[in-house]
């Protein structure tokens, strides 16, 4: 085995903080009801951020329109449940599949140009899709949202309850499986080639990495992840509105990823936890002015520097490992 392969094997080893994180997340299911809904929201946002991380953190594709795929997945799952079948897994798969197709089709657009072009193109794609949904009120429900989505029981026996316990278990398991998948992908030679492209596309190409093919592959994959997150939202809230395509969704997920740290498998999860809890906590105190405090905290956060905060965490982990 050569050095690079050895390095991958070493990095792919499971660390105990990871195991503890997942155990804790699942242990939360045993809690008395009351917090499942927000946990469910966090799990969905984390999956969405993980999807963005694949293209931004690993492949270096900046996007301001990632909600496009989230929305496609949400509407697909919602429409399927409304008109065909309420089976959640079927909706999840179809949502991911349709988002994959849209992702593949639009990946050809992001190949062109620089970061700025990509920002504009991704933003445009999301706006176009949102406007299509807006212009087809018969299909999408228009500004009133898609009404009459009824979900069947999960796996035929777990109903989606008012407390959201089933919803959280469902979203968490989906997040877990997709994190495993993402972990496998980024810790492979394919993942290494993505990072090479992010650092220097020209050089990666000169080394024999098929840059465009890799970018198309990862963009399509990320679209599938985002579509799955959208489908989860549609199914666990039994509702879809035009809001799933809105700019603020794309912007929020970018914020989440920046808070948590891009290019790190758990960045999306960490960011989703921090962002959602902050927003919920502050909004409980001041429903009118919470955005002010979130804004202030974000500025402070960026000024202090995530590296310093996360670096501190790493140092602690390193210390724990050495012992």
């Amino acid at each position: 085995m050569d050095a690079a392969a050895l390095g991958l094997v070493r990095r792919a080893r499971w660390r105990w903080p990871e195991v503890v994180l997942w155990l804790l997340a699942y242990a939360a299911l045993l809690m008395p009801p009351g917090k499942f809904l927000i946990l469910n929201e966090i799990a969905i946002l984390a999956l969405f951020a993980l999807s963005l991380d694949l293209i931004l953190g690993y492949a270096g594709i900046v996007s301001l329109g990632h909600a496009a795929f989230f929305g496609v997945g949400a509407y697909t799952a919602g429409l399927l449940a409304k008109h065909v079948t309420g089976d959640p897994l079927a909706g999840l798969l179809l949502g991911a599949a349709v988002a994959t197709v849209v992702g593949f089709a639009t990946s050809l657009l992001v190949l062109r140009g620089s970061d700025l072009t990509r920002l504009m193109v991704t933003l445009g794609v999301a706006m176009v899709l949102g406007e299509i949904a807006n212009a087809l009120p018969g299909l999408s429900g228009g500004a009133d949202g898609l009404q009459g989505v009824t979900m069947g029981p999960l796996l035929g026996c777990f109903d989606f309850d008012l407390f959201g316990r089933t919803a959280y278990a469902y979203s968490l398991t989906t997040l877990f499986l997709f994190t495993l998948l993402a972990r496998r992908i980024v810790l492979s030679p394919f993942g290494l080639s993505l990072m090479a492209i992010r650092r220097n596309p020209l050089r990666a190409g000169a080394l024999g990495v098929p840059v465009n093919a890799r970018l198309i592959a990862v963009y399509t994959l990320a679209a599938a992840f985002a579509g799955t997150a959208g489908a989860l939202l549609a199914q666990t809230t039994a509702f879809v509105s035009l809001d799933v395509f809105e700019f603020h969704r794309s912007a929020d997920v970018l914020l989440v990823l920046i808070i948590g740290g891009a290019g790190w498998l758990y960045g999306g999860i960490a960011g989703a936890v921090i962002y959602t809890l902050l927003q919920d906590g502050i909004a409980a105190f001041t429903p009118q002015y919470w955005q002010f405090w979130i804004g202030l905290l974000l500025v402070a956060f960026v000024l202090v520097g995530r590296q310093r905060l996360v670096g501190g965490l790493y140092a602690m982990l390193g210390w724990a490992r050495r012992r």
């Binding site: 809904l37 008012l162 959201g164 809230t237 509702f239 509105s241």
Partner: peptide
């Protein structure tokens, strides 16, 4: 509670208000 004018947020808030 502030629903920010977004339906799925409102739905979650309503659920939390009922349950918690």
């Amino acid at each position: 509670k502030d629903d920010t004018g977004v339906a799925d947020v409102a739905k979650r808030l309503a659920q939390e208000l009922v349950v918690n």
